[in-house]
Computed example of a mutant assay.
Amino acid sequence: MTQAIVELLAKDLDGNGGVHCPNPKADMKLWNSHPRVFLEIAHQGHASCPYCGTEYRLKAGEVLKGGH
């Protein structure tokens, strides 16, 4: 099974430099969701969900502002 890859813009990250999964950008159906988990993206530019394996990463060329 191929895991989903979700490319994010800098504006998609919250004030802590991350996102939550499940995420609307991951196109996950309600019946197929899992508990909400925070994924920190700003430090390394990517993170994988421990529940579903969805890979979230910053789109190439995106620049984070504000100390991230």
Results as ranks from 00 to 15, higher is better:
24 P>K: 09
32 N>D: 14
35 P>V: 03
30 L>E: 12
54 T>I: 13
46 H>V: 00
27 D>K: 15
59 K>G: 03
15 G>F: 10
37 V>Y: 02
65 K>L: 13
63 V>F: 07
42 A>V: 03
56 Y>K: 08
37 V>M: 00
29 K>F: 11
27 D>W: 11
42 A>S: 14
10 A>N: 00
48 S>L: 12
24 P>W: 11
38 F>A: 07
4 A>K: 15
53 G>F: 08
5 I>T: 15
40 E>A: 14
32 N>L: 12
41 I>L: 00
1 M>K: 08
57 R>N: 04
29 K>G: 05
61 G>H: 08
38 F>C: 05
31 W>M: 03
67 G>L: 11
23 N>V: 11
57 R>W: 01
29 K>D: 13
65 K>F: 10
54 T>V: 15
23 N>D: 14
27 D>F: 13
47 A>F: 00
2 T>R: 09
62 E>Y: 06
50 P>Q: 04
20 H>M: 09
57 R>V: 02
34 H>E: 11
4 A>T: 15
15 G>Q: 12
65 K>Y: 10
39 L>S: 00
4 A>G: 11
63 V>Y: 06
19 V>K: 09
1 M>P: 03
22 P>V: 13
31 W>V: 01
40 E>Q: 13
19 V>S: 01
32 N>I: 05
64 L>I: 14
53 G>R: 07
62 E>P: 03
57 R>C: 02
25 K>R: 15
14 D>H: 12
15 G>M: 11
36 R>A: 09
65 K>V: 14
64 L>W: 04
34 H>M: 06
47 A>R: 00
61 G>L: 06
21 C>Y: 08
